[in-house]
Design a binder for these strands. Structure first.
Length: 660
DNA sequence: GTAATATAGCTTTTT
DNA sequence: GCTATATTAC
């Protein structure tokens, strides 16, 4: 078969060793996607495995789509039947099929972080727990941590050493009860709930074990405890589990990822076949050598040396600029210079990677001035805008009548004369009769507790919309909803520049939904809403656009570009000061992040820093990142810039450098 | 009781 | 620089 012939011997082994547990340690740029797709194609074509018996879990939806696309070329229509997606997509699929057994129906709402926060605040106020005793942000963090570790409220309280663990456990318990009442789940639940069902309902476990006879997990180094447990339960019978990953690229520890999952795979699955892919097909010798210099400084790692047959290439460049504005100018000018020199390169061959999203602003400004086309991945997303969130909240509240949280969000937007006093009454009814907020609201109107005509009308139109929601195409419904609720009007009437922008965005959302309807004629509104909730930043990256891409290093995972700029290479920013304050492990994770960034580059890598960086209203002098110093002089060319400003500044800078 | 306006506080990475 | 809270105006 042609697709197997193009593999090197180790890749071939990884693709064709189809029975029993398989661990593929795949270094950066070692062709792991090619191996994964070849393996699936081999299973279907040569081993006659039914496509529906294959589960391929990826880190992002984009990676899942890419695998599907490549597979379509290899196996044709059969690729449609393979289940590919993130852990969250898979969990959702299971919950929509089986959730009725634990009190969830298929119209369930997925709560994102903002909705989680609102619910926690709501629960805290109901339990009269003060923000001072348990800051909601810490509560959220702890609850998510517990869920990633597959801990119930009781287990959490037992294990946690956090001083507010008692409060958190209490809030966590109430929070879970609320979620069920609201027919809603958070990200953690998408994985925890299926596990709970597998453990308590043997028939459900049987069903999915038999369905997913062959399991593949990509980016295994970034799986957490629950994800481990889920795959472990599923794979226990057939033991056909293949995981791919690279411990050196584990960068999601802060989200509960457990690097031990990959390090201890061999112990968890006796009889594991191990394949190490160490030949890099992506980068030049210089880039690879420089990257190896950095990662070698980590104590905790499996020994592994990536090598390549590629050219020596250009040296890695380190450029120290005066400030972040000059940093952006340097990048833009270099892009122009390189493109003038090599006509074959396009804008889309360049990427700018940074540690924090806020860094994108300066680059955006300079590119705008210079007329360089660009796209920003992540950061302030379209779906994070207030008007879009409000609209989605309306839609969620309409199709899921139990979703009190989103109902609460929109009940007085636009203002309908429903303030704190009115809501207190509704909350009282809700508690007294154990009703959803919407039903309580209706009861308050029926019982003439709320008498304003405006409020009566609102309840009437809400009921009508709920009836209509399944009677017309999704985009038409959305448009009608915006009309009837007066939400569009609310912004239009304001008539400010900002408000008109928001109206434009609402139109944008309607056409996005219309687009979706064209591609998914049979989809329901809940399908769309769930899709939006599970969409990731990297999913928005479109290679067909010929633009320079800006994104965080985290978002760049799994991608590659001919020319890469890593900017903000300064102590305190990268490694980030919040990580430096913590233990050695988190610093090692920063180093892995640096390694991930560097190994995205195929031809040329620029490391850039700013000697002066403004943080808020202050400007601070900086010291180049320790990661720069870790690169041997053989592979890096340094360009320093003369000190700036007055003699006083200069003395000040030297003092800072000396740490006095 | 509710709506509009001023102020303070935070900004690591994300499914 | 942008959002949640506090204050004031209606």
């Amino acid at each position: 078969m042609p697709f197997l012939k193009s593999l090197n011997p180790l890749q071939y082994k990884a693709a064709t060793c189809t029975t029993g547990p398989l661990l593929i340690l795949a270094g950066a740029g070692s062709g792991k996607t090619k191996v994964l797709t070849s393996r699936i194609a081999h299973l279907i074509i040569h081993k006659k495995v039914a496509p529906s018996n294959i589960l391929a879990v990826t880190f992002t939806n984009k990676a899942a789509h890419e695998i599907k696309e490549r597979l379509e070329k290899l196996v044709g229509d059969k690729s449609q039947e393979i289940l590919t997606g993130t852990f969250h997509t898979v969990g959702l699929k299971i919950l929509r099929e089986e959730g009725h057994r634990i009190g969830l129906n298929s119209k369930l709402t997925i709560y994102d972080e903002e909705e989680q926060t609102l619910l926690i605040k709501l629960v805290m106020s109901e339990l009269s727990i003060d923000e001072k005793d348990a800051p909601h942000k810490m509560v959220l963090y702890e609850i998510n941590l517990a869920k990633n570790g597959n801990l119930s409220p009781d287990e959490y309280r037992f294990q946690s050493s956090n001083p507010i663990a008692d409060y958190v456990a209490m809030i966590y318990r109430a929070y879970q009860n609320k979620l069920i009442l609201m027919n809603a789940v958070d990200f953690g639940d998408l994985i925890c709930k299926p596990i709970q069902m597998f453990k308590t309902m043997p028939d459900v476990l049987e069903k999915y074990r038999d369905l997913f006879k062959y399991i593949l997990v990509d980016e295994y180094q970034d799986t957490n405890k629950t994800q481990y447990v889920l795959t472990n339960l599923l794979a226990a019978r057939h033991k056909n589990i293949c995981v791919v990953g690279d411990p050196d690229q584990s960068i999601y520890g802060w989200r509960g990822a457990n690097i031990d999952n990959i390090l201890k795979f061999k112990e968890d699955y006796p009889g594991t076949t191990l394949v190490k892919l160490e030949q890099n097909y992506r980068s030049t010798k210089n880039i690879l050598a420089a990257s190896n210099c950095v990662i070698q400084n980590n104590e905790q790692r499996l020994d592994k040396t990536l090598w390549t047959d590629n050219h020596e290439g250009e040296m890695v460049t380190f450029e120290e600029c005066l400030n972040e504005y000059q940093e952006a100018r340097f990048v833009v000018n270099t892009v122009k210079k390189i493109m003038a020199h090599d006509q074959k390169l396009k804008y889309k061959d360049f990427t700018v990677l940074y540690r924090t999203n806020t860094q994108s602003r300066t680059f955006e400004e300079v590119c705008f001035e210079e007329g360089i086309p660009y796209t920003i991945i992540g950061g302030f997303k379209f779906f994070d805008r207030r008007e879009i969130k409000d609209t989605l909240a309306y839609l969620k509240a309409i199709i899921n009548p139990h979703d009190s949280l989103n109902f609460l969000r929109i009940v007085n937007v636009p203002p309908r004369g429903i303030g704190k006093a009115a809501l207190d009454k509704v909350h009282a009814i809700s508690r007294a009769h154990n009703l959803s907020l919407y039903d309580s609201f209706k009861k308050a109107v029926d019982d003439r507790i709320l008498i304003k005509q405006e409020i009566r009308d609102f309840v009437g139109s809400f009921d009508m919309l709920r009836r209509e929601s399944s009677e017309m195409p999704l985009h038409e419904f959305t448009s009608r909803m915006l009309d009837i609720t007066g939400y569009s009007d609310f912004w239009e009437k304001k008539n400010t520049e900002d408000a008109l922008e928001r109206v434009k965005n609402l139109d944008g959302l309607v056409s996005a939904i219309s687009n979706y309807v064209n591609n998914h004629p049979k989809a329901a509104l809940s399908d769309y809403l769930n899709l939006v909730s599970l969409m990731s930043d990297a999913d928005g990256y479109e290679e067909k656009h010929n633009r320079v891409t800006f994104m965080t290093i985290h978002s760049a995972k799994g991608l590659e570009f001919p020319i890469v700029f890593m900017v903000g290479m300064e102590e305190g920013l990268f490694p980030h000061k919040r990580c430096m304050e913590e233990d050695e492990d988190t610093l090692e994770e920063e180093r892995r992040l640096c390694y991930v960034g560097m190994t995205r580059a195929k031809r040329q890598l620029f490391l850039v820093s700013a000697k002066n960086r403004s943080a808020g209203k202050e400007t601070n002098q900086t010291v180049p990142s320790r990661f720069i110093n870790e690169i041997s002089a053989d592979y890096i060319r340094r360009k320093d810039v003369a000190p700036q400003g007055t003699a006083q500044d200069h003395i000040e800078r030297i003092r800072k450098l000396l740490g006095s």
